[in-house]
Write a protein that binds this DNA or RNA. Sequence first.
DNA 1: GCTGTGACTCCTT
DNA 2: AAAGGAGCCACAG
Length: 122
Amino acid sequence: MRSAKPAPVKLSDPHARILEVVRRIPRGCVCPYGEVARLAGLPRRARLVGTVLKTTAEKNLPWYRVLGANGRIAFPVGSDAYLRQVARLKKEGVRLKGQRVDMQRHAWPREEESLDKLLWGG
DNA sequence: GCTGTGACTCCTT
DNA sequence: AAAGGAGCCACAG
């Protein structure tokens, strides 16, 4: 194998780490771009999360569980992407108030979950 | 290599 | 509530 690098992604690769975090968001839960970045060990790199979601073609990736800050859907209201995202979220029981998700109810990780990780080491 | 863009977020007016 | 600006930086042209 010399030419045509398949470029196997390393765990240190920011893209791979972001995708891993997104895959871990449980059904019925949501997580903001900035939080996904932090959980991936990439603080202040929320934009990269958007770039990764936009460019990846991975099947079954729950991209729709990733939201803007404060539970806002990041797409323009009424756009195809917006409607798709809302539909997927509703299908798994996520509550919305207008163009916002009820973060109190659906935010991930939950406080106690984060605390457990700190106390027990994840 | 440089520039403009953007599925972002935070802080200050 | 809303708007401007800074920080961030991969990508496309």
